[in-house]
Nucleic acid binder design. Structure first.
Length: 271
DNA sequence: CAAAGGTCCTGCTCGC
DNA sequence: TGCGAGCAGGACCTTT
């Protein structure tokens, strides 16, 4: 479900409600997510003050003095701030009850998400240690991307969706940035000029930044921490638009499966 | 044959 | 031959 813009929108939505609060109680209803939720979390967090909410790629980081709660939303996860008396819904697997009476709830029907704890520096955690740069950081540019791809024969779409290359680009924004850069999704990485890599890096940054501004993309059910949808869906040029006219040339947008992921592109404009 | 916004893990192939 | 990197596919789940 959520890519960088949706995770960042979630972060911004929940942070003001939970930063500075103390944890009154931790409830684990369903520990079996992608990895089990650590069963000692309740005693680990009880009475502790939540300092801030950060993000690394698609991971949300709830920062405490003595460590960090690492959360991932997987394909179908969402985080909401609710009142203490709000009814518990199906797939509400985890919650933090806060000193101000409200709660942070994780809902995740498919259970591909994760709730983990580290008492060490987050950057040392195995899931985060090997991640590539943030797309909106200085370190991410066309020269870097070209370096990543110059010796690879697999497709450019797979390269930019690989978190070791760059974080936060999922299926939607991979399709969108490739369309904007006029690069065909299946083009082998080692057959793209550095000039085109520069364009692509720029388009990735732009599409993500625009999507963050619009509160992310709501396709079916994404809502931010305040329960509001994102508005970037209306700005999508190819994703989910198979058969519709390409905004560039008017020919129909195509949808093909690539590496087991639905891929939208214009066969005329993208090469 | 269903597809959905993620990504780790395994076991294979490829090139030096 | 051996090694490491790259690569494809499977796995994990539920809902529409």
């Amino acid at each position: 479900m959520p890519e960088l813009p949706e995770v960042e929108t979630t972060r911004r939505g929940i942070a003001p409600h939970i930063s500075g609060q103390r944890i009154r109680r931790v409830v684990i209803r369903q520990p079996r997510l992608r990895w089990p939720i650590p069963d000692d979390l309740p005693q680990l967090l009880k009475g502790r003050k939540l300092l801030s909410v950060a993000r690394r790629g698609k991971y949300l980081l709830l920062v405490f003095h003595h460590g960090t709660l690492i959360m991932h939303l997987g394909m179908s996860g969402s985080l909401r701030i609710v009142e203490a008396d709000a009814a518990v819904q199906k797939h509400d697997h985890f919650e933090l009850q806060l000193s101000n009476g409200s709660q942070l709830r994780l809902r995740d029907p498919r259970r591909f998400g994760a709730v983990l704890w580290t008492g060490q520096a987050v950057t040392d955690h195995p899931l985060l240690a090997a991640l590539g740069p943030e797309p909106l950081d200085e370190a991410f540019d066309g020269d870097y991307l070209h370096d990543c791809g110059k010796n690879r024969r697999s497709s450019i779409k797979q390269l930019i969706m690989d978190g070791k290359t760059v974080v936060g680009v999922g299926n939607i924004y991979a399709c969108e940035s490739l369309f904007r850069a006029a690069i065909h999704p299946t083009r082998p990485c080692n057959r793209i000029s550095i000039q085109r890599y520069r364009t692509l890096a720029e388009e990735i940054r732009e599409v993500l930044a625009e999507a963050v501004t619009q509160g992310g993309t709501t396709l079916r059910d994404f809502l931010n921490g305040d329960g509001k949808p994102g508005y970037f869906a209306q700005s999508l040029r190819v994703y989910g638009r198979a058969g519709e006219p390409c905004p560039g040339c008017g020919n129909p947008i195509r949808n093909k499966t690539l590496a087991q992921r639905s891929t939208f592109y214009c066969p005329t404009c993208q090469h």
